[in-house]
Amino acid sequence: MVQLLQLIISGAAIGCIYALIALGFVLIYKATETVNFAQGDIMMVGGFVGLSAMTLGGLPFWAAFLVTIVVMTLFGMGAERLVLRPLLGQPAFTVIMMTIGLGYLARGVVTMIPYWGTETHTLPVPWKDEVFWIGEIGKGLVVSVEHLAIIIATVALVALLFAFFRYTRLGIAMQATSQNQLAAFYMGIPVRRVNMLIWGLSSAICGVAALLLAPITFVHANMGFVGLKAFPAAVVGGFGSIPGALVGGLIIGIVESLSGFYLPEGFKDIAAYVVVLVMLVVKPNGLFGENLTKKV
């Protein structure tokens, strides 16, 4: 029983990372109807930005955290303005290829930057390697602070996002854009600028995910491949749904963690993909997805 709870907690923690990256997909998908295949690689860039701020800049963790969020917001907005806005109105495949190219480019460029390079770096977070016990020490449930930090930060971030979309002018403008771009434009919402801000927001979320994930997987150029497991999370939750992304991420994380323990070796890595295939065959719209039909 303790074993099971243990697995569920560590699965939930990784699931939260998937959820955060999936949240990034979902925001961009909802607003612009494009899928950002570079999301994982943007997260990787965020990890390196945070790392540089801490080790090269000598900043404490919290300051580095803020620096990462600011830099990643600008990065996302810049990417949108430079390469994605010219493709506005082009078929989805064109945009998908563009984001794939962006990710491919990011992986290449990061290894060429001095100090970042191809090595694996450790992010010196304050809670590194700390654990605490629930129940009796030595017998009860052991929770590493890294995992707890991820869960708490994700819950806080989602709550913050919820409040942002619900109560701020910009958040409501973003909702309007995601529901109907043309109508939003007629209502005087600067749709292009809103799209740019959404890319910024989504990249910033990835930056946060990177800093949370870094103590577990370290920072390296291929860190972004975690992003590929966020696709299943987004699909399971229903691609256009924010709570769906969270639930999907948790499901994928926990399934992965349990199958790593109870199933033969090898299943852990593909569990997420098996789940998504089953989901696509059984219920393509996901748990929280809207039923979409194309009008002719």
Binding site: L102, A106, R107, G108, V109, T111, M112
Partner: peptide, 10 residues
């Protein structure tokens, strides 16, 4: 640099 080729193709 090993990243040269992906960068160029990207």
């Amino acid at each position: 640099q090993t990243g040269l080729q992906p960068t160029i193709f990207g």
